[in-house]
């Protein structure tokens, strides 16, 4: 028990910082991935000529292991383009790359779930295309896919543990570093595992709650 207390007190600082890095990378990656995914999803409808390119991009993101994508972005891109210079950037870029492909598909499913009649009703009232996107399609779609978005965010958090491999000081990195200093993996590793599991369990409970709410709202 003394061991545990000592761990918590002595290493609260680095672990806290690590959690902060983990969450910032995940949020950053999620925001970028969602924007890119939504952009692809909308553009695909308006630029049929580019559809094969978007399809190839999505297939690549979804079908390549995240670890390889991470090393590819961090070292191969850097070799070729001189960017990303910082490992932090490489971390969120790689995570966003992976998720943007999944999210593009999620958004597409969300748009498909909005009945055509709802758009026609708005057209029949003379509402403009832009307003229809903003007021009818996007809100309904976001309600429908909110649980899937949350699940993708959870996937990003899980994958973010990998960035420790390219020396980003996230929670996993701190855990490994402190294990080296203490020479005993048991308390630190277990504590960090518990933190991750608690954070992710809380998020999936939230996601389930969201799904119930939307179901009640949108069922008809």
């Amino acid at each position: 028990m003394g061991f545990w207390t000592r761990t918590l007190l002595a290493d609260a600082g680095p672990l806290w910082n690590g959690l902060y890095v983990t969450l910032s990378i995940s949020v950053m990656a999620f925001v970028v991935a969602a924007s890119v995914g939504l952009g692809i999803c909308i553009l695909r409808g308006y630029l049929p000529a580019l559809r094969p390119i978007f399809a190839a991009y999505i297939a690549f993101c979804r079908n390549t292991p995240i670890f390889i994508q991470l090393l590819w972005v961090a070292y191969a891109w850097y070799d070729l383009l001189g960017w990303p210079k910082e490992v932090f950037t490489a971390a969120w870029v790689a995570l966003a790359l992976q998720s943007s492909g999944y999210l593009a598909e999620t958004f597409r499913a969300g748009i498909d779930s909005v009945p055509l009649g709802h758009v026609e009703a708005a057209l029949a009232l003379g509402i403009s295309r832009l307003s229809i996107w903003r007021r009818i399609i996007l809100p309904q779609m976001l309600l429908t896919i909110a649980p899937s978005l949350m699940n993708q965010f959870i996937v990003i958090i899980k994958c973010s543990t990998l960035v420790s491999v390219i020396a980003v000081p996230d929670l996993m990195f701190q855990a490994l570093r402190l294990t080296g200093i203490w020479g005993d993996p048991v308390p630190i590793m277990s504590f960090v595992a518990v933190i991750f599991i608690a954070v992710i369990m809380a998020l999936s409970a939230l996601s389930k709650h969201l799904a119930d709410l939307t179901h009640a709202r949108l069922q008809s």
Binding site: M189, A193, I197, S204
Partner: peptide, 16 residues
């Protein structure tokens, strides 16, 4: 088990 990141579980089982 569904909430545990793969990497965390890998290290935990390997070292702890």
């Amino acid at each position: 088990i569904r909430s545990a990141p793969e990497l965390v579980l890998l290290f935990w089982i390997y070292s702890v």
